[in-house]
């Protein structure tokens, strides 16, 4: 079972949900922190770092002595990472997604590849929870390959929770794709609703089953509930706007440990997710 925890809007409580759910699993679980621009799940769980692997992308290197400036490489690259205008190609490595297409279309074999580092993947053991987190290098704007490197560390048969980046763009799709179920975390505000609607469209485009977690019940209005009813989306869990939860979070604590009355909430969420969103 792979559960992705995602959200159109940032700051709605994705990591809170992911971490607390991992804590109530009761079996070994992998928590994949795919929010590679700001991974923070490990701050709540602690643990020991077991491995640290560098992740690189293959980017083109042109041998100008073999190039006849035919321009095929530049015509192929939709990201403009290699440009050839009747001149020797210019390479913009920071735009390269590492697909290797330019190398394949070059009729003269003038393109080779070198490795360009984009970040690291760390594995941290924390009391039955294996946290695997991607950490994008500062200045790199190429998250999807690093997200995929984190997900390559899924273990067959071991349940996994994927903490996705916020939004609905390429890094999020890289994180969510392949999940068995997607839990979208939102808050009952106009911003929360707007970004939830975008996220629902994204998940439906990927044809994945989904449910919604509404955090901070008590702020805002009822429109998120109405939206879910109208769209036939199950509401998996409602978390009240409880100041104590914010205090636990701000200290890097875990809600189900610090406030045991919430344990049953997250166990219910676990059961519903494992049942594909149906009421337990």
């Amino acid at each position: 079972m792979i559960l992705a925890v995602a959200s159109g809007k940032g700051g709605t409580g994705k990591t809170t949900v992911a971490v607390n759910l991992a804590r109530v699993m009761g079996t070994p679980v992998r928590l994949l922190d795919c929010d590679v621009e700001e991974p923070n799940a490990h701050l709540f769980l602690g643990g020991e770092t077991r491995s640290r692997d560098i992740v690189s992308l293959p980017v083109p290197v042109v041998d100008e002595s073999l190039c006849d400036a035919c321009g095929e490489c530049g015509r192929f690259c939709e990201f403009h990472a290699i440009v050839s205008l009747a001149t020797k190609p210019l390479v913009f490595a920071e735009l390269c997604h590492g697909c290797g297409g330019c190398l394949r279309v070059c009729p003269r074999g003038a393109i080779a590849e070198r490795e360009r580092r984009i970040g690291v993947v760390e594995t941290i053991e924390s009391n039955g929870i294996t946290v695997i987190r991607g950490l994008l290098d500062v200045g790199v704007a190429m998250a999807p390959p690093l997200v995929r490197a984190v997900k390559a560390r899924l273990a067959p048969g071991v349940p996994a929770i994927v903490d996705a980046p916020p939004g609905t763009s390429c890094p999020v799709i890289a994180a969510v794709r392949g999940a068995d179920f997607v839990a979208l975390v939102t808050e009952p505000t106009p911003f929360g609703l707007n970004d939830l609607a975008l996220a629902v469209d994204m998940v439906r485009e990927l044809d994945l089953p989904l449910g919604v977690v509404i955090n901070r019940i008590g702020v805002g209005d009822e429109r998120v509930h109405a939206f879910c009813r109208e769209k036939g989306i199950p509401i998996l869990l409602e978390i009240p706007d409880d100041r104590r939860i914010a205090e636990v979070y701000s200290r890097g604590g875990i809600v189900v440990d610090a406030l045991p009355e919430y344990r049953a909430h997250f166990e219910r969420l676990r059961d519903r997710v494992e049942g594909g969103g149906r009421p337990s």
Binding site: F79, H80, V83, L95, A141
Partner: peptide, 16 residues
Amino acid sequence: EAAQGAGIQAAQTIVR
């Protein structure tokens, strides 16, 4: 409308 590389693409348009 390009997500990235707008300057590069515009420069190609100019050159062509």
